[in-house]
Design a binder for these strands. Structure first.
Lengths: 125, 125
DNA sequence: CATGCAGTACGATCGAAGTCGTACATAGGA
DNA sequence: TCCTATGTACGACTTCGATCGTACTGCATG
């Protein structure tokens, strides 16, 4: 059956492996603030990051380099940190790498519909 | 009858009087950019403005002073301009006064669900 | 142990935006 | 016509964020 256009896909929360490193510091669900989240998403590069994570994540989470941005590494660190501190993404340290994924359940619980807007976004129209 | 919680209220687009002044310069519907709109909404004072317009607008639109903010007038002008230039509100000049209202239809068309998030927002939790 | 690699930390620079004081414009009323 | 009230325009100050170079950390591999 075709996807009903009215039923917004909540994006699946990927099952987490059992032996994960602790997440880096992040706001709790009830500490998420709409104005902060919107501020984190008011940047084209960060919208691209979140949208790509929502639509193209086959694996559980992804390293900074997986996105293939042509930017200095320190710039990317800055944006990934902004997303995490706003509560949009969760980051875990896997040895050398710091991997990110979207906090789908938390965001859907607090701001239903928001991730659908991000997924529908297109850069530069 | 009580409002159904599942049916998201699209907020009514208030009927416009027939003899309105021209709106001040604003982006067209198809020029609305998600990152710009989110940036305009990533400020507590501006969220308060939009939310108040959505929930408490009995009249068609409202003057800058109707909100009762305790801020310098020039600061308010700045924020109302930011909302209009992002496409969130429309402003019309009525003689001395510049009145604002939310572009409900345009925003619902381009970013469905966004206004519901703003209406559900509460300052400072 | 030396090298390479992934990514962070720090700090400098630059521009955009928030804040606000002051001056200005206009309509309405005494 | 003068005064007042509403609100804008402009400019100064300050803060914040984006960008990026450079140095550093830690693992993995030879």
């Amino acid at each position: 059956m075709p996807a009903s256009p009215a039923a917004a896909p909540p994006f699946k929360a990927l099952p987490e492996p059992s032996d994960l490193p602790q997440p880096l510091p992040e706001p709790a669900v009830d500490e998420l603030r709409l104005e902060t989240v919107l501020g984190a998403l008011s940047d084209p590069l960060r919208l691209t990051i979140v949208r790509k994570l929502l639509l193209e994540s086959e694996n559980f989470d992804h390293t900074c380099g997986w996105f293939g941005f042509d930017r200095p590494k320190s710039s990317l660190t800055h944006h990934f940190k902004a997303l995490r501190e706003a509560g949009v993404t969760r980051q875990r340290q896997y040895g050398l790498e710091r991997r990110s994924h979207v906090r789908v359940d938390d965001l859907n619980a607090r701001f239903p519909g928001l991730l659908e807007l991000v997924a529908a976004w297109t850069p530069e129209d």
